[in-house]
Every structure is written in C-alpha cells, then in structure tokens.
Simulated assay, not measured.
Amino acid sequence: MKARPTVQLWDPLLRLCHLSLATVFFADYFFNEEGDDWHQWLGYYGLACVLLRLVWGFVGPMSLHRFLADAVLALVCVHVLAAIVESLRLGENLPLSMITGRRRQR
C-alpha cells in the first residue's frame, strides 16, 4: 500500500509552546500550592509562552514571508514615485539618466 503524503500543520515553535503550556498547567495544578515560588515562576513561564505564541502568530513563517513581500513591493512603489516626483521637480528625465549614466549640465 502506498503511503499518502503528509502536510505540516504546526511548526516546531508552536508545538513547543503548546507542550510547555500544557506542562506548566499540569505541574501547577497537581504539584504546586498556590503562592509557592515554583507556582509563580511557572506562571510567568506560561505567560511568556502565550505571549511568544501571540507574537509568532503575527510574524511566523508564512506571515513573515507575506510581510516581507509586501514591504518590498511598498519600497519599489516609493522608489518609482520618488523618481517621478524628482524628474518633475528637476525638469529632467531621471530614469533615462539612470540608463545612460548622463544628465544635462546645469
């Protein structure tokens, strides 16, 4: 029988955060008393896991790729707009000057 291909649903950081949070809950609920030092530190660690997961949701692998692609597109648009504005301001065809490497003397 041929094995069907698989798809990765969760990246390693997401799985680590989930496992850490489950471990923190289990340890705090069953082994520590409320107010103990361990209870407080595990609570801080759990909060850090949740915050890391929230940040990773916005800048994770797919989100980061999309953000960078959009940022590059925005920079290209700003560059083209600046070339047009400066060409109009100087009365010079700057894209042509970029191609030829020459410009009229002032």
Rank of each mutant, 00 (worst) to 15 (best):
V76K: 15
F26R: 12
F58A: 09
Y29W: 10
N93V: 08
W56V: 02
R104G: 12
L21T: 12
L96T: 05
Y29A: 14
R66Y: 04
V85N: 03
G101C: 08
G35T: 07
V80P: 00
L42P: 05
G35E: 08
F25K: 05
H79V: 03
Y44Q: 09
Q40L: 09
E33T: 14
M98I: 02
Y29G: 05
F67T: 14
F25N: 11
V55W: 01
F67Y: 13
L13E: 11
I84Q: 06
R106W: 06
D28K: 15
L14Y: 01
W41P: 00
L19S: 13
Q105T: 03
S87N: 04
M1Y: 01
C77R: 15
A22Q: 13
F58G: 14
G101W: 02
V50M: 05
H65N: 12
V78E: 10
F26G: 09
L13W: 06
L13T: 13
D70L: 15
R103N: 06
V55M: 06
L52Q: 02
F30A: 11
E86P: 00
V72M: 13
L94C: 05
L81A: 14
L9N: 01
V85W: 03
M62G: 07
G46R: 04
R66H: 10
P95G: 08
A22E: 11
R106N: 07
F31V: 03
D37Q: 11
N32M: 13
W38G: 09
R102N: 07
P12D: 07
R104H: 08
A83H: 05
F58W: 07
L42T: 07
C49K: 00
N32G: 03
L51N: 08
F25G: 09
D70T: 14
L47N: 13
C49Q: 06
P61L: 07
P12N: 04
R103A: 15
C77V: 11
F67W: 13
R15T: 07
